[in-house]
Structure formats: C-alpha cells, structure tokens
Nucleic acid binder design. Structure first.
Lengths: 202, 202
DNA sequence: CAGTCACTAAAACGAACGCTCTATCTAGAG
DNA sequence: CTCTAGATAGAGCGTTCGTTTTAGTGACTG
C-alpha cells in the first residue's frame, strides 16, 4: 500500500467532505480527524486556514472529475455516444457512493456566491476546464466553433444539474435521461458535421 | 403598502437567505434580523426550530419558482419556445438580483444530502413539481408520455445546472445557451409530434 | 553532540451557533 | 375594569466554530 503524505490525506479528506456537506458545513477539526491528522498539522501545511484548505481540495476534486470526463470522452469515437458515456459513468459513480459524492464544486460554489473569495474563482475555472474537454471533443469531431461552444456549456450544465437531481432523488434515472437527451441533441448536428467533414476532405 | 405578517416576513427572509447562503450558512438570528422580527417571534411561530423554518422557506421558494416557470410556459404556444422562455426569464431574474438569487432549493438540498432530514424531502418534491409543469406542457402539445417524462427531467436538470453555471460565471450566457439547445432538443421531436396530432384528429 | 528544522500534539481563546428561558406587551372576552 | 392567550423581546445556556499558542517529537546537519 502506497504511503500517503499527511498533506495529501488532508486534501483528499477535505475534498470528500466539501462535496458532501459544503464549505460552511465542513469543520477544520472534522477534516483533520477524517485525514488522521491533527489540527496542528492542518495549520502547518495551510497557514492561511480553512479557505486555503478548501481551495486545494476543490482543485483536487476538479482534477478527479476531469479525469472521469476524459476517460468517458476518449472511450467513444462518436461525440454523441461520448457525452452519453459521461452521464453513465457519473451515474454509476454516484450510485456506488450512496448518492453522496456528487460534483465536487457545486456545493462550495453556491455557498460562496455573494463573496469574492478565492473559492469562487477556483470553482469557476473548474467549470471552464470541464467545458473545454467537451469543447475539444466536439471541435475534433468536426463541429463548428460556435456550435461546439454552446453545446459544451450546455452539456456541462446539464450533467451538473442532472447530478444534483439524481442525488436528491437517489436514482440514476435523471442522469440516464440527461445522457440520452444530450446524445440526441449532439446527434442532431451530425448531418451538418458530416457535410463539413467531407468538404474538408475535398 | 400591504402589511405583511411577522410569520410571512420570517418565511420570506429565510427563503432569500437560504438560497443565497445555504442551510448551515444561514443563522436563525440572521433570519430574525432580516425579517425585522425577534428571536422570540421566530421560535413562537416555529417551535421546532431552524429546520421547521427552513422547510417553510423552501416551500415558499418552490411556489415562487413554479410561478415563474408557469408564466414562461403559458406565454408560448410552441413547447420549444416555451422552454427557451423559461431560460430567458431565469437569466433576467438572475442578473437583476446581482447573480445571487438562484434556484431556491439547490443549495439547501446539497447540504442535507447525507441526512434524512425533512428538508431533503421538500427539495425532492419541489423538483418533482417543477418537472410536472414541463411534463404537462409537453403532453398537452402532443408528446408521447415516455418522451415527455425524459424531456421534462432533462429540462429541469439543465435549467438547474445552467443557473448554477450562470451564477458562478456571473453571466447570462450559460442560461441563454441552455435555452437555445433545449429548444432545439424539444423541437427535434416535432415531426413525430405533428404526425401524432394529425392521427388524433382523423 | 548540540542545534536546527519540519512536523505533530493538545490546550485554550473569543465569537457565533441553535435553543431555552423568563418577562413584557397587546388585544379581545367576560 | 380584570383575565387570558397570543405575540414580542432579549438575556443567557451549552456547544462548536476557526484560530492561536505553546510544547514536544524525530531526523538530519554542522
């Protein structure tokens, strides 16, 4: 078993707790306990306190979520099938966690909306990064830039929203439905895309 | 100016605060202050404490949000245009509030996921109610039951997610994009729907 | 072998939390 | 008028919050 550093354990534990109970709902002492670290250790690695821990934790969650998206997108050639695969993987992961491990940024983002905290900035850039994964996939498949941009934004928003709905309803169905409908939506561009692909080849 | 009862002021203030800062982030004393009531009054009308206030507040928010959806849906004959109208209204309302007054249940729902509190049940039924508004609209326009169900779930999920994205990005664009794409998605069923409408008429 | 440094450990601070308690005020009934 | 129930007011309870402080540990360095 790989030995995890104390710092890493703190970040991972904080990430899990943040996505389950949000920023205000998660205490520093609870993070320390969950990470099998002491309060002193937490403040040693993060002298700036709770917000600094949260920023590191959200960035960690952003990478995890991005890896899941990338795996799903790379596993399918057709963009419509790829988007559906994202929804399926999210549904499976969500069910296996007992409906608690949802999107790692939504909860924290909503709580810090009014404020101008660093947390909000990290959440915003996480959404941007995930959108870009979808955007690149669509562009690579021959979509027009403007279509790809609109679609990528909507795909991420829909996955985000469907994840929340699935958590509240404790069912995979909202994510499954979102996957089906997103695939249909993406597929509805296919004719134009195919034509454009042929033009490029000529 | 209509005189608002103390109880109503408490519920309204709690609803606003809950959707802006979530359940744990909102204190009872803060609610009392915002409602121009005293702590004693709050516990007089809600002897069961904070959770009871939150339940009443979320139910209030649910009705407000439903009214907005209903107005948008009733304002357009074509279901695709109606869905787009929902997104537009949400975008306008969100901008006018300075990007803070988003969906009244998302924040509270996410925080109480692990628990089996009454709050979670109220949030779940709120989502159900909103879905039903879209579902009825689609059914009335001639959609097949299964299509309408899938679509209604996805429409609400997408609006939910796009609202969060718009709040984080402080821009109407995510909601606008979601509206456009949802309209396209709903519209993609139109041929089948038209045929079925004609069959019914014969 | 003393000294330094990264890290762990735990006690304690003031502030805020949800909530309970008692006291006062107001308005209609007898 | 008195009596009473509903409503308002706020001090104070125990607890937990984020943070600070102080002490102690092991390991590597000069």
């Amino acid at each position: 078993m790989a030995e995890t550093s104390t710092r890493d354990r703190i970040v991972i534990a904080a990430s899990r707790l943040l996505q389950r109970q949000g920023y205000v709902g998660t205490g520093i002492k609870q993070i320390a306990q969950e990470a099998r670290a002491t309060l002193g250790s937490v403040y040693h690695f993060f002298p700036d306190g709770k917000e600094a821990v949260a920023v590191a934790a959200i960035e960690h969650g952003e990478r995890e979520f991005a890896a899941l998206l990338r795996a799903a997108l790379d596993g399918e050639e057709d963009p419509a099938a790829a988007v559906d695969a994202c929804a399926r993987r999210l549904a499976t992961a969500l069910r296996e966690s007992g409906w608690v491990d949802g999107c790692p940024v939504t909860a924290a983002a909503l709580e810090t909306l009014g404020t101008d905290s660093e947390i909000q900035r990290v959440c915003a850039s996480a959404l941007r990064d995930w959108e870009r994964l979808v955007y690149d996939k669509l562009l690579h498949a021959g979509f027009r830039e403007e279509d790809a941009r609109d679609l990528a934004t909507t795909v991420i928003s829909t996955l985000e929203g469907a994840e929340v709905t699935a958590q509240v309803r404790r069912s995979e169905e909202p994510l499954r439905a979102a996957g089906r409908q997103l695939a249909r939506l993406v597929g509805s561009y296919e004719t134009g895309v195919a034509e454009r692909r042929d033009e490029e080849r000529s």
